[in-house]
Nucleic acid binder design. Structure first.
Length: 777
DNA sequence: GAGTTTGAAACT
DNA sequence: CAGTTTCAAACTC
């Protein structure tokens, strides 16, 4: 198998690690009433948290960070002490967790399987929260621990433990600014739309969401005051990567983990909010990191992006972090200032590592997220969706090292070592998996993996191509990786590498029963969740992309291994195509991978969507390279801009372009296209009506036929049939008129349409007679 | 359905 | 980087 070249390898980390584009707009509080939780479903069925499955990191750290001191409050799970906050899924009452050391207490409300952690701006806010709900519980920080007890059906409690912060300098400082700041929860839909909701006293006013849509709860700390108490999440499931080199000192520290569905009878999971004493945390860049479970409520998602925390804060950036609890995503957003919010989540214990996790990195504008999509029950697989890229990347986090691997036995209580909050999974292997286009990622009918078993054993696991032998879930030892998987060594060595896996495999993973937890957990699968992770394809909406199945290719000479082939260009295998000598399939993975590498060597952007976000002031969608049309006037589908239904931009090098806003030709074309579409719809409707009328008539006349024994076709020509037929003819006439057909031609078309109608009537009549005869026999 | 046109991709 | 060739889709008849 070919190993991804260093060039490609160098590309992949950037793809994954780059989170600069992930910027969440500050969303004003849209619901000051404090509605913090939206039930994902109208019913009260609790959604269990997945905790028994292996998870890269069991630790979730919520850190309160003083801007200058980088102080982080950590919830450690090592021991359960003082106050414990229990959140029951059944209860929809907000729970307020206040910490003396924390400038802003956290309001925690759980309802309908959702837990919202909110940082209460002030004690008054706490009181308000209490007043809002009599059952609100304020937990002093002394306890440093709060227990989420019944998030899942299993009732497995999740313990959030806060270490004593008496010695933490940043705590008091943070609390002092809490009033000025208005920490808020932002409920963010997967599609990127965010809904900011104050948490305080919110539970009573919960608005049940009709659809099982995953919500992201975002905690935003907009104030830039150094005294502010930025919330710092440190997700410590880190792997070494070059992406965090000094060059990219601002690379976000990721490594998140996500809580998902718990199988019943699971030991209490402890989420540790540890205070990182490591300076690396301090230097952690403030880029926004969104960790969201886009999948079913039963999923636990973990984001692990960077292994090392950049030591420089040269580029303070907003750092939104979504921590998904069950179906919810907790987002912590920190404005780009002196005290950026930081999220630290340690994955030091890869207990119960969730099998397949996906991370979607939004590529469109700043509102995109890296989302984690749990795909499989097998641990250590993360699907990373990089908007703007046609590949999906799957990161496999292996528990090869004892320290990094989680102890799967016993209650999943993991604690983060303060001194090494970010060192979690040194043996992690990141896999970059070109799958399907991110936008087209969708749940489809499950089908077993049919690939031949090709397992490559190697002394250098991170650089070997692993071929999946069976449809079994991905194993940590990579023995079940799909064919075509290529491991690329991480630059600079280390235990981290990338593996390029055929896109379809991820789809297959998603389709595999092993992947879908809902199938086995008894919870209804939420197909919509995954769709939420989809991102626009070439500027098209998800609905557009999903509603348009890709056309089969007709390649004859390229073997479907060049970008001429749309299938290949989209990172897909050929399927039901008309190509000849196709190598874009599982049987030719070696060649395919080589071709991918070649394309990437030639153009690292080769597999990225051509239609992306334009510059400020320009159209939202524009061709990344611009077209070079010379003869088509950019008004035919030869033009990639026109084909994408966008206008040419300044970067186009086209000649005689007519594809601009004020172009009369373009307007005419658009008008004609719209008219044609309307005509087609009308004609289709008319034909459907005709068929319906005929069918209805057949139903009514069937007894007559059967008894009378032989009616002529004209018997079926009733008033309704005539009307439907006339509609078809009129529509045909309109179409001919609009297309400026000569009268003779128009008459011909009308007559032909009439003939078609007659044929349908006769055919239906004959069929009805035949059916009746067969019935009588 | 065959042939032509077109422009992106690939190549030199 | 520019020019040429190759290629497959779009288009026309």
């Amino acid at each position: 198998m070919d190993v991804v070249s260093p060039e490609l390898n160098s590309l992949l980390p950037d793809e994954i690690m780059d989170t600069e584009a992930i910027v969440m707009e500050d969303v004003p509080a849209s619901q000051p009433d404090g509605t913090a939780v939206q039930s994902e479903s109208g019913d009260d069925v609790p959604i269990p948290m997945e905790t028994d499955t292996p998870v890269v990191s069991e630790n979730l750290s919520f850190c309160s960070d003083a801007s200058s001191t980088e102080h982080t409050q950590a919830l450690t799970t090592s021991t359960i002490t003082d106050s414990m906050l229990s959140i029951s899924s059944e209860s929809q009452l907000p729970l307020t967790l206040s910490s003396a050391s924390l400038s802003a207490p956290f309001t925690i409300s759980a309802a309908n399987h959702q837990i919202i952690l909110n940082k209460v701006a002030s004690s008054q806010a706490i009181e308000a929260a209490k007043s809002a709900s009599s059952s609100t519980q304020a937990v002093k920080q002394e306890g440093q621990k709060f227990l989420v007890r019944t998030i899942g059906k299993s009732g497995q409690p999740i313990v959030f433990q806060l270490p004593s912060t008496g010695s933490k300098p940043g705590v008091g400082q943070a609390s002092g600014d809490a009033k000025s700041q208005a920490p808020q929860f932002k409920v963010v839909t997967i599609g990127g739309r965010t809904e900011l909701k104050p948490v305080i006293g919110s539970t009573a006013s919960q608005v049940p969401t009709p659809t099982p849509q995953v919500k992201t709860v975002q905690i935003t700390n907009k104030t830039q005051v150094s005294s502010a108490t930025p919330i710092k999440f440190i997700i410590a499931n880190t792997v070494n990567s070059k992406g965090l080199t000094a060059q990219r000192s601002v690379s976000p520290v990721i490594a998140g983990r996500v809580l998902t569905q718990n199988p019943p009878v699971l030991p209490p999971r402890t989420i540790t909010l540890s205070e990182p004493l490591n300076t690396s945390i301090q230097s952690m860049s403030s880029k926004k990191i969104a960790i969201s479970p886009l999948k079913t409520p039963t999923k636990l998602t973990v984001v692990s992006v960077a292994s090392q925390i950049p030591t420089s804060t040269q580029k303070p950036m907003t750092l939104p972090v979504n921590v998904a609890l069950g179906q919810q995503i907790l987002t912590v957003q920190q404005p780009t200032t002196a005290s950026p919010a930081k999220v630290v989540s340690s994955q030091s214990t890869a207990q119960n590592i969730k099998p397949l996790q996906s991370v979607a990195v939004g590529g469109v504008s700043g509102s995109q997220f890296k989302t984690i999509i749990p795909l499989a029950t097998q641990p250590n697989v993360q699907q990373i969706q990089v908007p703007g890229s046609r590949f999906h990347y799957v990161r496999l986090v292996t528990a090869t090292t004892g320290s990094s691997t989680g102890q799967t036995s016993g209650p999943s209580t993991s604690s983060i070592q303060p001194a090494k909050p970010m060192v979690v999974n040194t043996g992690a292997v990141r896999m970059s998996v070109p799958i399907v286009q991110a936008q087209t990622m969708k749940q489809v009918v499950r089908k077993p993996l049919t690939s031949t078993a090709q397992v490559v054993t190697t002394s250098h696991p991170q650089q070997r191509l692993i071929m999946p032998a069976t449809p079994l879930p991905i194993q940590p030892n990579f023995t079940n990786l799909p064919p075509g998987t290529v491991f690329a060594p991480a630059p600079g060595g280390g235990n981290v590498g990338y593996a390029v896996v055929p896109a379809q495999y991820v789809t297959q993973f998603q389709q595999s029963p092993y992947v879908t937890l809902a199938s086995s957990s008894g919870f209804p699968a939420c197909s919509g969740i995954q769709s939420q992770a989809r991102l626009p394809l070439n500027g098209l909406s998800t609905a557009e992309t999903t509603s348009r199945p890709r056309k089969p290719c007709n390649c004859t000479k390229s073997q479907c291994l060049k970008l001429y082939c749309d299938c290949f260009a989209n990172g897909e295998f050929c399927n039901n195509c008309n190509c000849n000598n196709c190598f874009n399939n599982l049987e030719h993975e070696t060649e395919r991978l080589k071709a991918i590498k070649t394309c990437l060597d030639r153009n690292p952007e080769a597999f990225k969507p051509k239609i992306g976000k334009g510059k400020d002031g320009e159209s939202d969608r524009r061709h990344s390279k611009g077209c070079n049309c010379k003869r088509s006037g950019c008004l035919k589908n030869y033009c990639e801009c026109y084909e994408a239904k966008i206008m040419c931009s300044s970067i186009c090098k086209c000649i005689g372009c007519k594809n601009f806003e004020e172009s009369p030709e373009r307007k005419t074309l658009m008008h004609l296209a719209d008219a044609a579409e309307v005509r087609v719809q009308q004609q289709t409707a008319a034909k459907t009506k005709l068929s319906s009328q005929i069918s209805d008539l057949l139903m009514r006349t069937a007894p007559v036929i059967s008894s009378g024994g032989g009616r002529l076709p004209y018997t079926f020509v009733t008033k309704e049939v005539l009307e439907a037929t006339c509609e078809c003819l009129i529509e045909q006439a309109k179409q001919a008129e609009l297309s400026h057909q000569p009268q003779a031609q128009a008459e011909r078309l009308i007559l032909e349409e009439f003939g078609h109608c007659l044929m349908r009537i006769i055919s239906s009549a004959g069929k009805a007679k035949t059916d009746c005869a067969s019935i009588n026999c």
